[in-house]
Amino acid sequence: MASHAQRNSSVETLRILAMLMIVTSHCVMFTNLDALALPFGVNKVLIETFLYSGGKVGVVAFFAISAWYLSEAGGVKAGLRRVWILEREMLFWSLLLFAATAALDHSQAGVRLATSSLFPTITALWWYPTAYAVFLLFFPFLVTGLRALGRTAHGALAIVMLVLFTGLDMVMPLSAVGLPGGNYLSFVYIYVLITYYRWYMRPMRDATAWWLLGGGYALIAAGAVGGGILYAMTGRLQMLQVYVGKVEFRLPVLMVGLALFVLFERHEFHSAVVNAIASSTFGVYLISEYPTVRQWLWRDPRLDFAALAAGHPVVLIPALVGAACAVFLACTLLDQVRGLLFRATVDRNRGKWFDKLAGAIGAQFVNRKESV
């Protein structure tokens, strides 16, 4: 396992940026600020273009990092081992945060939350880790199948998926053949695109990546402007303002997220500090998105963004970003403590218990096969 200092800190910087975008998007969506109902203007368009849509752009960029490195990995055991390691961190935070909920606000510590905290993956306590865990179970077979397809068939598959899942979704929003969003199928789709790019295409030039980035944001901004004008005139179709940036498989989101990954991946530097912060980004997500913590953070009466939007709209965007950065920093510090605890205990021989279990199961399988 590479140390923090050995990982490409440019990619790890993108990991940090992606999680900041996700947290900022949650700040916009879950505080008392009704961003979509704000008066039409520059402030509203900027919030919808860069902050609201940032959640799904961040998801694409965050997953693209994993997909890039997984494109050269394989094996059922490797996939299961990753799920095992993922589950340890999820259980740590789900059980600890449930205990905190029981102590601080026991009225919310019901049976449903307790069950979800005991089984965070299968109950989808957090959608991203559940979707990623299911993807990890499929990916060894997926990568083997994609390798067997070869360049031509893989490219045809990518085109079919683009047409069905992105093209039809843009022109026919009620199409019944699209993706639901927010589950492992979106990751399978993005993985097919990324592996085709990595295995068969020439590296994208910086200029092309910048055009993709600018074009994607231009489309998101056009949707915000067009939808904003329609909503201001009719008071209807409010969600149309953020339609093109609301789901991870829509074309503008893919354009921006993948362009960001290309721009960061091709550069390289090494920083132990950057890599250490990046190692806690998953923990930031788990902490800030635990159901009761989300409520405590974003429904705090001191975060009165609605009043700020009405009285001081000029400072609204800096305030939203500042609040998100503060939450990111606090959660990072907490997860760094978790990291220290893990390094002193379960990470001293990372995956040891999984390897033992896998070895025992493998031995039993071999013995049964020989007896037959």
Rank of each mutant, 00 (worst) to 15 (best):
S71I: 06
L303N: 07
L162M: 13
R198N: 08
F30Q: 14
L125E: 10
W93L: 09
V83C: 13
V274M: 13
A259M: 04
A306L: 08
A114G: 13
G58N: 06
I47N: 05
Y128W: 13
W298G: 04
P173H: 01
C325Q: 00
Y290I: 12
A176Y: 00
R294M: 14
Y128C: 10
V293N: 09
I16A: 03
Y69Q: 14
K356D: 09
G359T: 03
G359K: 02
I22R: 07
E268N: 08
A37D: 15
A224E: 03
A133T: 05
H270F: 07
A307Q: 15
F269H: 10
A5Y: 13
A276T: 14
G245Q: 09
A37V: 05
S53Y: 11
V76H: 04
A99G: 06
Y69C: 04
G223D: 09
N43M: 02
L260V: 09
G75E: 05
V111R: 13
H312A: 15
A99Q: 07
P313N: 01
A18V: 11
F92N: 02
L334W: 03
W84D: 06
F98R: 04
L174K: 14
S71Q: 06
E248S: 14
F30C: 10
F141R: 04
F269M: 11
W127N: 14
F40Q: 01
V134P: 04
G181A: 12
I190E: 11
A109E: 08
V346I: 15
F139H: 11
R81L: 10
Y52K: 15
E89D: 12
W126F: 09
T208W: 07
Q241H: 10
V188K: 09
S66G: 05
A363L: 12
R147K: 15
L17Y: 03
M21E: 04
L51Q: 05
Y243T: 01
H26V: 11
V76P: 01
K356H: 09
V366T: 11
S117G: 00
V134A: 14
V262N: 08
F328E: 12
A358T: 03
V372Y: 09
L33C: 06
F354Q: 10
A326K: 00
F141Q: 05
V60K: 10
Q6A: 15
T208P: 00
F139M: 15
L263Q: 05
V23A: 07
W298A: 01
L258T: 14
L320W: 00
L303K: 02
F50L: 13
D347W: 14
V23N: 04
R202F: 02
G178W: 03
L168Q: 11
A222P: 03
